[in-house]
Simulated scan of single mutants.
Amino acid sequence: MELSILKVFTNTLKVAEGDQCLVSGEHILVSDMDTKLDDIYFSLQRLPLHGRVELNGFPLNTGGTFSWGDLHSLRIRYQHDGSEVLQDDILLEVTDGINSAEFVLHIEVLPVNDEPPVLKADLIPMMHCSESEEVAITSEYIFATDIDSDDSKLVFTIARKPQHGVVRKAGITTDHFSQGDVISGAVTYKHTGGEIGLVPHFDTITLVISDGEAGPFVNGCCYDVPHPSFPLHQSFPVYDLNITVYPIDNQPPSITIGTMFVVDESFSAAITINHLSATDPDTAADDLEFVLVSPPQFGYLENTLPSVGFEKSNMGISVGKSWFHDRK
């Protein structure tokens, strides 16, 4: 039985005029002694008047929901519409499945006096990487310009790390790098997720682009405490770099010997997966092939299935190889 009261505490969200900002656990704090945070959900009760709320880059409408996990993983953003109004708010409801409470997240809009970095318009939206391999992150995938700064000194900071790999600079895992590093070819993505099976996996790196010459700290947009990776700017473009990881057939099959194979004198018997089987994380079972290296001394192997395009059985014809699916 739940006896505790669901409590919500908020800190004002600060965002530069016309910009977007991550909504995190620093802005919305939930207290519920009887419920795991993973069971906490939020619903949008009223849209902000001067912007929109986004989940993974897609706008949320009235009644749209997101989880505490989405909030904690920095998947929620507020996008300001660029108007001159310097205040906004979001009406939300939080629930643990039994109790619920409405609350307002206040937004302070900071006027902008300089130009933020701007991402190149025709960036390639998806990188490709083979399983367990490493690929360069080049300016075809991430590139920005800033009329107030040297473009090579723009800083890319990782706001959300990839789930199946790491970002490296000159061979060392890093959480930030400059555009000059990208141009020189020093920045890479390395897949570290091991075997992925038969289908591709998808990974994402969320990057915040800032002006490296502006100073060592940020106060306002996305964080209300100093963070050494961000310069002192009021607006930060956020970009999701998507990666497709493709499987590689680089593992040999594993053979399993089952129960003893028994056949009566002068008779035949079927060899099934109970006697002989194989698995391969990189290959579908029906594509595995057994090849006869040394024939039996007092008999022969036959595949009684008809050849492709024929109906007559191949019984009595010795074979040198067999497909895995023929023994099912």
Rank of each mutant, 00 (worst) to 15 (best):
L305T: 08
I248P: 01
D211H: 09
Y78D: 01
Q163L: 02
M315N: 07
T65M: 11
I196L: 05
V118P: 08
K321F: 12
I137M: 10
D148Y: 11
F9D: 13
A214M: 06
I248Q: 04
N113I: 09
N242K: 15
Q251M: 15
C221L: 08
T244V: 14
V238A: 03
G215R: 03
A214C: 02
S152R: 14
K321L: 08
P117V: 01
Y300D: 00
V245E: 04
E17V: 11
D150E: 09
W323R: 14
P306M: 03
F42Y: 04
S178D: 08
G171C: 08
V166F: 11
E2S: 14
I172C: 07
L154C: 07
F58Q: 13
E195T: 14
I248E: 06
P117E: 05
D19K: 12
G97W: 00
V167E: 04
V94G: 02
S24T: 15
P296C: 10
G180C: 00
Q297Y: 10
Q45H: 04
L22K: 04
L110S: 07
G299K: 04
D32W: 03
N61E: 03
I90S: 08
T304L: 11
A121P: 03
E133C: 07
P281Y: 07
P296M: 07
S139Y: 06
Y41L: 05
E84L: 10
L60A: 00
Y78S: 00
V85S: 09
F310W: 09
S318H: 03
E115W: 09
Q163A: 09
C221F: 08
V94F: 04
R75S: 10
G309Y: 02
A159L: 12
V104F: 14
K312V: 12
P252C: 11
D89Q: 15
L119N: 01
Y141D: 03
E102P: 00
F66G: 05
V155M: 11
G258D: 04
D32H: 00
D34N: 14
V263T: 13
G220C: 04
T204R: 08
E133Q: 03
A285G: 06
K190E: 02
E115M: 00
K153E: 05
S210M: 00
N303V: 04
L301A: 04
H128Y: 03
R46M: 13
F66S: 03
D146F: 00
V30R: 07
D286K: 13
V53I: 14
P111D: 00
S313Q: 09
R77A: 07
T283H: 02
I172P: 05
F298C: 11
T259V: 12
V319L: 02
L276F: 03
T259N: 11
P252G: 10
I40V: 10
P247D: 12
N56P: 08
